[in-house]
């Protein structure tokens, strides 16, 4: 990470609240271009809210967010333009059930970026081919497996040609045997040079794909650093407890599988 480079995403003193419940407290976070940051932490710690806030689905209560040096929390920001550059992929895929796979992917390029149908279709087919889903182009989402739906959802967010992609626990709703194909796709996104921020419970995956791990607890960033530090030698007690719990659970699951 070049020290004086403009970060892809910069959060400064970000607060977020639902009603009177504070969900994010004084978040400072810099994510460099091409960096992969994994957010970990117990349910309700604010990971999802952080991602939704960066995508501007929620307005910040206080603080600022910069995207490639531009303040996107300024009142006059064109949110729809920002969202083209920041893709968000949801836990539950949220594909549009009345549209085919191809139509799901081309909706934003055609209606927001005003591409012609021919151009948008061609680009979408390129993406589908690259990620092995070309034969599903004319299917409706309900006919696909969970893993395929999530891959389509990721491709849909890629189609607006974003520089940053936010992934919100994208494997949590999947059957175990389809998790691998989605993780493989995310690893490819990294190779494409995209900046990724992912909220995840997949510690093994976070360890291999993330450049940095950020541990959150009750709306605050408690600890961050390279995977080897945060996962193997956490300095803060709360991090240690969380990591121990998750890792012992993983070990238990593996042992149980071996015994079968």
């Amino acid at each position: 990470m070049i020290p004086d480079a403009v970060p892809a995403v910069r959060l400064r003193g970000v607060y977020q609240a639902y009603g009177s419940r504070t969900v994010l407290r004084n978040i400072d976070l810099d994510v460099a271009s091409h960096e992969v940051v994994a957010l970990i932490g117990p349910s309700g710690c604010g990971k999802s809210t952080l991602l939704r806030t960066v995508n501007l689905l929620e307005d910040v209560v206080a603080g600022s967010i910069e995207l490639n040096g531009e303040n996107i929390t300024a009142p006059k920001t064109n949110k729809n333009r920002v969202r083209q550059q920041v893709g968000l992929v949801f836990q539950q895929f949220n594909l549009f059930p009345h549209l085919t796979v191809l139509e799901n992917i081309t909706l934003a390029p055609r209606r927001v970026a005003r591409k012609s149908k021919v151009d948008a279709d061609r680009r979408a087919m390129e993406l589908l081919e690259r990620f092995g889903l070309a034969d599903k182009a004319d299917e409706y989402p309900d006919r696909l497996s969970g893993g395929q739906q999530q891959r389509v959802a990721i491709i849909r967010s890629l189609a607006t040609e974003p520089t940053v992609i936010l992934l919100d626990e994208v494997t949590s709703a999947l059957d175990p045997e389809t998790v691998g194909e989605v993780l493989a796709l995310i690893a490819e996104l990294k190779n494409l040079g995209l900046t990724l921020i992912l909220a995840t419970h997949e510690m093994a995956f976070a360890r291999t794909v993330a450049d940095r791990i950020v541990f959150m607890h009750e709306g605050e960033i408690v600890e961050q650093g390279p995977p080897s530090q945060v996962l193997d030698a956490p300095t803060v007690d709360r991090t240690r407890r969380f990591v121990d719990q998750i890792l012992s659970h993983d070990v238990a699951a593996v042992t149980a599988q071996e015994q079968l």
Partner: peptide, 20 residues
């Protein structure tokens, strides 16, 4: 969540209503 997905893609309020 359908509205959220459409807005996250950059569709405006009207477009979200009409297309999604």
């Amino acid at each position: 969540s359908q509205r959220a997905a459409a807005r996250a893609l950059g569709l405006g309020h009207g477009q979200t209503m009409w297309f999604v």
